[in-house]
Nucleic acid binder design. Structure first.
Lengths: 193, 193
DNA sequence: ATAATAACAAACGCAGTGTTGATTATTTCC
DNA sequence: GGAAATAATCAACACTGCGTTTGTTATTAT
């Protein structure tokens, strides 16, 4: 049996507030959402909110932090290379797209439209670090290459772009299809796809 | 002689407010900036502000709109193809990077860190439309290809990523060098650079 | 020079903030 | 199961910024 940390009441309150914020953010941008409004929506006392969070941005940040945590854990379990040592980002991308599909509402809110730029930056950094740590072994001559940071910026931002497009357009492609598509773009190059 | 539209007082007020907002946004995110604070910073009556803008977000949007206008005008003047009809995004990229260099402070604020996601989306759309309208002629078989929208999303987002990296890291490369680098990434592919 | 208009100053009710103290309900731990 | 601890609630508080108004002064266009 799993031991969920803390008081049940606290857990309950936090969960309701998170869900409520996401619900409101699907209707309006974060700037327009007041603490009062959120608490009314969730039927939770305003004082209770302030005993957990400083403001709505603080709550949003907690949500983002948890999400980033999940992403990092997910990324850890995969390699960006296949058994031959060739670049193979497809498995990791597949798991990311599966996660996106399962949390489409929240991901769309955080990563698209009126999303949080700083958060997207953090996601990029996480993925970029993964790429750099695994590929620098494969392509050592890029290590001292000044332009390599731009190469990674291009690839990672490009991936985020594809992923945003998929979320926004409610793409019918499966996570595996998307992963294969992205791998093609990265390994074979954009112009040759 | 150029005929600047409207009353000199209005022009003056708007200019001061714009500069003031940019100044404040280099220190804190837009959410933390109040109308009162901005007006105090600019030494402008709060009532005067409200006679021009609804709130700070409205003012920011006006700034963004003007910037997008400049970008569109700039893009119009260049082609994405060379005389042989081959893909050659370098000239257009070069002009974009020159513009970024000249307006680095503002661009960094709007496009990086705590920037406005919706604005970046608009920039992407503008560039993406340019790409699609010129390249669909060159690669007609991609027209009915469902994956082509992802291809463009990848390329355009990748470009924005490089450009953000250059702004954030205060890159020493010249606009022309950056343009050549981006052209390489697009035409030859990321993995072959 | 005159009429139009923009910027200013001061004041207004209003809404949301963040905090407090007292009360009730739930949970933990023995 | 019962006592102590802790969380959620409610009502009230002063406070800050909002958005608007009215009357006055300064600047502009013609």
């Amino acid at each position: 049996m799993e031991t969920k940390s803390g008081d049940r009441r606290v857990r309950k309150t936090k969960t309701i507030l998170r869900q409520g914020l996401v619900r409101l953010m699907s209707e309006k941008s974060i700037q327009e959402i007041t603490v009062k409004e959120l608490c009314c929506e969730c039927d939770i006392n305003r004082g209770t909110f302030y005993s957990h969070y400083a403001d709505v941005y603080d709550l949003l940040q907690k949500i983002e932090e948890e999400m980033l945590c999940v992403l990092e854990e997910m990324i850890k379990e995969y390699s960006l290379l296949d058994v031959k040592g060739e670049a193979a980002p497809s498995p990791i991308m597949s798991s990311i797209f599966r996660f996106l599909a399962q949390n489409a509402d929240m991901c769309r809110i955080l990563l698209c439209n009126n999303g949080d730029m700083a958060f997207v930056e953090k996601v990029k950094d996480t993925v970029k670090n993964k790429f750099m740590s695994e590929w620098k072994i494969r392509v050592p001559e890029n290590d001292n290459n000044k332009t390599s940071e731009y190469l990674y910026a291009f690839i990672v931002s490009g991936c985020i772009g594809v992923l945003q497009q998929w979320l926004i357009s409610n793409g019918t492609q499966t996570p595996d299809e998307m992963a294969a598509l992205v791998e093609n773009l990265i390994v074979r190059g954009a112009a040759n796809s």
